[in-house]
Design a protein around this nucleic acid. Sequence first.
DNA 1: GGTCTACTTCACCTTCCGCGG
DNA 2: GGCCGCGGAAGGTGAAGTAGA
Length: 565
Amino acid sequence: MPSAVARDAHGQVQRQDCVYGEGYDWAIKQDRMGRAGPEVNGLPAPLPSLEWPLPSQSGQYELLIQQQPKSHHRAHYETEGSRGAVKTSNGGHPEIQLRGYQGTAPLGLQVFIGTADERLLKPHAFYQVHRITGKTVTTRSMERVMNGTKVLEIPLEPKNHMRVVIDCVGILKLRNADIELRNGETDIGRKNTRVRLVFRVHIPQPGGQFLSLQVSSDPIECSQRSAQEFPAVERQDLDRCSVLGGQQMVLTGQNFTSDSKVIFSEKAQNGEQIWEVEATVDRDKTQTNMLFVEVPSYRDRTISHPAKVNFYVINGKKKRSQPQHFIYTPLTAIKAEPLDDYHLNSYGYSDNQSLTGLSMKSLYHHLDQDSSLQALNISPTLYHLTTVDPRAHMLNPDPLDDQAVYYQPRVNTLINNPMLYHTANQHYSNCSTALLGGSQMASHSASTPSHCVGPRAPMAKLGEGPQVADSFEACLMSRHESFVQAGLPLGKSPPSRYIHAQAQGKVGSRVEPGDQHLTHISSGRGNHEERAPEKVTIKQENLRCAYLEDVNDIIRRDLKGHNGE
DNA sequence: GGTCTACTTCACCTTCCGCGG
DNA sequence: GGCCGCGGAAGGTGAAGTAGA
């Protein structure tokens, strides 16, 4: 088992262990690439952190999952033998394809185990990918460790139309106690048994850049027990209806029984349950993987804002599915003011789906989903990150934020770190205040929201460490605490930002303390093109229904969007 | 009636066993 | 016979629930 010492994207020396499949020329070729990233002009390029969100599609390229893994796979412990490769529901194996690749050289597809909870996708602390070997395995693979996360690399070959069957990926469960005792680990393992397979590919681009794409599978339940007994909703054909209810919703999933009930519920901000009602299930049509539900009417038919509720399927006393989300839309419209400098039509809102009653969250979401910056007539710009805190970038991990990452190492030096990442479809550019004067990002106080960069503003940092992440998360929390505790409309807090990245080496951002009703989004060209910033102003009102939970909702929706759902 | 504590129940985690290919 | 993949279950642990002071 060869091991290597490599420098990661931040120049930190780290040990990486590699395990090769037999007769694996490709692996040897890829080894150098994987240790410190692909090579550019003979120099190793760093790969984006596994915690970075990446898009599944960019330009002509698309990384997609042709066959999704089964929703249950019992992971094995280190003390056990392998429990085999992850399978699809029809007994086959997941299949991945990279579309749009015209090159002749094979690429490496990276696979790791990611989280599947409400938060942002990141490597799962309690599960690791496990390389399956044996005569039934047809796919070559190579195992390595990147920053403590096991990653399998599988060749994607043009002769196979850049399509590969993932029959060599198993899931290893680490003992909760071992992980929870680890320094800096804040997650708990108990009941944290859902994972996703995450696939990444790095495509060489002209000029020595690389384009990184990522796609993650549907969630996989990895525990023995829940897999056998608990109902699981995998899909719902309806996610909203009017407060009157009455519409039929078809749920597809697992472990539904003739006794399954569907419970709609709503919780107040303080977590107190304020509404619960059992929906009518069509028992005659019920199958083990399908439920037909009549949406119950909402408790309050006079709402003026969409109401977000949950529902779950329950088989027995405590055998209930993960909560699913549902939105009741109001019957009556409320005042909607035209938004300055903002063309609703460009977002395709129909009359009954106007901005009426739309929260800031919804606005953001729609903006995001429709590649809003383009719609807002913001020209593509170069987007620079200097060793960016991935979670800063992930603050709003929507398709817009999930810019494909081009990276080109050692092109220029910014303060202490030399890495410049250029995104595809580069809509905006920015850089953290951390870069100003070389101040340490870690010094950003969680209690000073003014240091938080706006929702679509990646923060830069000058080192990777828990204090930075903590600071960022605290920063995020702080922002939302201010929403909830102060009861301010979302449009008023936190203060808007004016972010402007200049050419490399002179980048920076500043907070504009001015009118907090306004959200400014500016863009400037980076090192290749200079362009005057364009400003978009959005006026927002009626935002009282913005809750902390909205952030999760945004994340959830966007993750779903990621998966092409 | 509210709070605290001790006890009980049960869900979950981890390990082990055994079977078939 | 050994290994792998897999199902099932035993036993430990801790969270959740309940009863009594």
